[in-house]
Amino acid sequence: MTARTRNWLLLAPAGTWFLVMLVVPLTVVLIFSFGERGPAGGYVPALTLEQYANLPARWTAFKNTMVLAPVGTIAALLIAYPLAYFLAVKADPKWKTILLVLVIVPFWTSILIRSYAWIFLLGGRGIPELIDLFGIGKPRLINTPFAVLIGIIYGYLPLMVFPIFVSLDRLDKRLLEASSDLGATPARTFLQVTLPLSVPGVATGCLLVFILLMGEFLIPALLGGGKVFFVGNALVDLFLQSRNWAYGSAVAATLVFIMLISVTIYMRLISRLNTQREDVSLM
């Protein structure tokens, strides 16, 4: 058996699996999105743009997703950065690994149960009752955009901390010493040395969180109470309730298309930022 045949045989099962369970289904979605809804739901073959023309009917879901996904990403970044900085630069090396694992572990545990915890905390007998003790009245927290935002930050914070930590941890600490030896204040060192060097980590973290948020269903379903509707919620509605496969496929295809466009623009911006930085460092 030649090396070539061997490699092909090794790749065959995974390749077939990807073909049947990934390529074929995604192609079906694309084809169905140009079709029509059957009388009892499902799909009737056709070649029409009708489904795409109907997209504005779900505008709210797209709007919520396109607002709350970037806002959630930035909020998670703002909270994650100082923590990642602390872990990479300030924390006692003895505790570093444990502290890092403590951040990552929640990400790999059920997001369903972690979101459920917030129904509990934000619900009538949770935090609102605590706030009531101060005599400012009982605010309504659950089923609001605020609750969804909390859920998003809570769910995706670990995913944001990790890549930023990695980029800060790799950073040559002598650069920081050099900067302060040359008379830079700590703030200036941070702005001119640490922050630019952590851009790759920040970029990766934001990308990961943004991608996952674009397809989010559970957090708005549990914490938004049907009032904060994401594209994911619209998709569940269209496929499992109204069984409108053609229209649902168009919504799904549009979601993936928006993701591709925003990720491409984002990558361009990041690579431009990186080349600019190199120009500066050359001077």
Binding site: V28, V29, A252
Partner: peptide, 13 residues
């Protein structure tokens, strides 16, 4: 690709 899109694509296919 979001899990939800994988889910619906697999379902209808």
């Amino acid at each position: 690709i979001p899990g939800i899109v994988i889910g619906i694509a697999t379902l209808i296919a």
